[in-house]
């Protein structure tokens, strides 16, 4: 399918139809229907272990659905699709890495090509990508010396290198401070508007991207809700989703979800605090009222 037709038309870039994923006896989510349009920003919300990363793995063709289908630009997904950009959950590069900032971005361009000699046009393209993600000033620094926020910009630049039609970002804001959270969110938001790619943005905390997301996919206890943030992030909706009373509080432009039950579907998950979801921005004073 020609790329331009897809982008200018209203065909969804990604479609999930009755998508169900089950491991052994545990259902992560079932019957998920979701269309992501070109240029659309969709946030995937849910506590630890609700299967957000698994959803991305399904879309990347690395994990098969138990039931249902997942289509990328109308075709069943396959592994190694260059049309899908991927920013994995943060992993800081360590010392033995023979890469500078620009080389990490460059791998997104030709990392899969055999041989060792770089192409001629690579330099200019990488320069442009570095400028787009605001990484020009540290282009020649070793990746292992960069901060989390700087590395995250590079990962986005790396993902943009293949000019994807869909960007999958797995908790790209985790372990970033507030100003970097805002910078990274705005970077993705601006790029998807300029380039017109769809975004599936996995996050614990909706607040940094609240003004940007078009829709949310909210996973909880094997069930889900989709819709605009205003549709989904409401006390009645989440109470029904969780099957127990939950309060959604809006204060100073932020959304805070209080009283989510400890998800009984992950009793072995030791990182899980009892009584509320780990949807917080790690503020200890927020122990009771947890920001979603």
């Amino acid at each position: 399918m020609p790329a331009d037709a897809t982008r200018s038309g209203s065909d969804p870039v990604l479609s999930l139809r009755g998508a169900t994923l089950r491991f052994d006896d545990r259902t992560l989510w079932s019957g998920v229907d979701l269309d992501v349009q070109p240029g659309e920003f969709v946030a995937v919300l849910g506590a630890n272990g609700t299967g957000k990363t698994s959803l991305l793995r399904v879309i990347l063709g690395q994990q098969r659905l138990t039931r249902g289908e997942v289509l990328f630009e109308g075709e069943p997904v396959r592994a190694g699709n260059p049309g899908i950009g991927y920013v994995p959950q943060q992993k800081l590069a360590d010392d033995g890495t023979p890469l500078r900032a620009r080389d990490l971005v460059g791998l997104g361009l030709d990392g899969g090509r055999w041989g060792f000699w770089p192409s001629r046009r690579k330099r200019a393209v990488v320069d442009r990508l570095l400028a787009e993600v605001g990484a020009t000033s540290y282009a020649r620094k070793p990746v292992s010396r960069l901060s989390g926020g700087e590395q995250q910009r590079l990962r986005i630049g790396q993902a943009l290198a293949a000019d994807p039609h869909l960007l999958l970002a797995d908790e790209p804001l985790a372990s970033l401070d507030l100003s970097n959270q805002r910078a990274i969110s705005e970077l993705i938001d601006r790029q998807r508007r300029e380039r017109g790619f769809g975004v599936l943005f996995v996050t614990h905390d909706i607040n940094p991207v609240l003004g940007m997301v078009d829709r949310v996919l909210y996973l909880a206890g094997g069930r889900f809700r989709t819709g605009t943030p205003d549709d989904v992030l409401r006390s009645e909706v989440l109470s029904e989703l969780y099957g127990s009373p939950v309060d959604v509080i809006r204060a100073r432009g932020r959304i805070i979800v209080v009283g989510t039950p400890d998800s009984g579907h992950a009793p072995h998950d030791e990182h899980h605090d009892a009584g509320h979801e780990e949807l917080c921005d790690h503020d200890p004073s927020d122990a009771e009222a947890v920001a979603l």
Binding site: A79, G80, Y86, P88
Partner: peptide, 22 residues
């Protein structure tokens, strides 16, 4: 010489390399 670049990609960033079909 043949595998240099994809091997480097796979060595430093296995997740993204896998996603890109390496």
């Amino acid at each position: 010489a043949v595998v240099w670049r994809p091997l480097m990609f796979a060595s430093v960033d296995a997740d993204v390399a896998t996603a890109r079909g390496v």
